[in-house]
Amino acid sequence: MRVKLHGVRGSRPTHKNSLLGYGGNSTSIQFLLPGKDFELYLDGGSGLAHHGLRLGSQTKNRKFYFLVTHTHWDHMIGYPFFAPLYNPNNEFVFYTSSPLEKDSFEKLFYGQLAKGHLPFPRDLVKAKIEIKLIKPGEKLVIDTDVHVSTYQLNHQGITLGFRVEYQGESAAVITDNAPIENGNHLGEHWKELAKDNSAQFEKDFNDGLVRFLHRCNTVIFDTHFTEENLKADWGHSTPHRATKFCSDAQVGRLILFHHAPEDTDQAVADKVTSVINIGKSAGLEVVAAREGDEWPAK
């Protein structure tokens, strides 16, 4: 299995000469599964739009699975331009959490196609679409031997981290996730849940995430901020936090991801430098996500 990075930016896509080395498109990741005749993606940021516009509506594979982390714009804006959606013979399955209070993925997915917001007619999207609701922690099996597990992250609403296992290899994506310390509990209803024992809640979350990532080959982790500019309640992490989780979990490779739109190529490179030795001492390889790159999950 390999992971392909179609979009690596957080918050919004951005285009400026100083950052095009790592790329300006927002979150889109593809899991390349040798021997399978379907496609597996995570999220639909602007990177997915470009991938889809190039693919066109006539594709070799007819079935598309999507793992949906959450519905913030940077993870959503690409869907309407994913041309395989325009083909009536294609089938889509979206796995998404079911928020308690906020709008569902279904409402927001179709909301993006709403009249007045796109220049093409809504019925251009002709593929068969199925939306499957999953609970945090739920495990899925796609096509008998692709195993997917989930973990709720410390981010607004109900945001899911995903881990994909195939042929004995594993890759996980943790986007977006803030440090949970000091009552920074961003998940839906977490404040109430944690009110009696905040410290235990935080410890359980952190231990749970380490277990979730245990011995994973390749982990793509939100490192939007640095320790210097961290705004914890904005819902994002830093290279140091990501490196700590991944070394505690004995991960093989950490890919720094969800670069802030303000981050220049130099700033992204500096993030890698800031943790590369900490990683090395724990046997962890640290690299930065670059648009278009492919990494093996081993």
Binding site: P13, H15, N17, N25, S46, A49
Partner: peptide
């Protein structure tokens, strides 16, 4: 139009 197009191939005419 439609969606941002950040790329080294769009440096002159723009990608936002």
């Amino acid at each position: 139009a439609l969606i941002s197009s950040p790329s080294k191939d769009t440096k002159v005419y723009g990608g936002n």
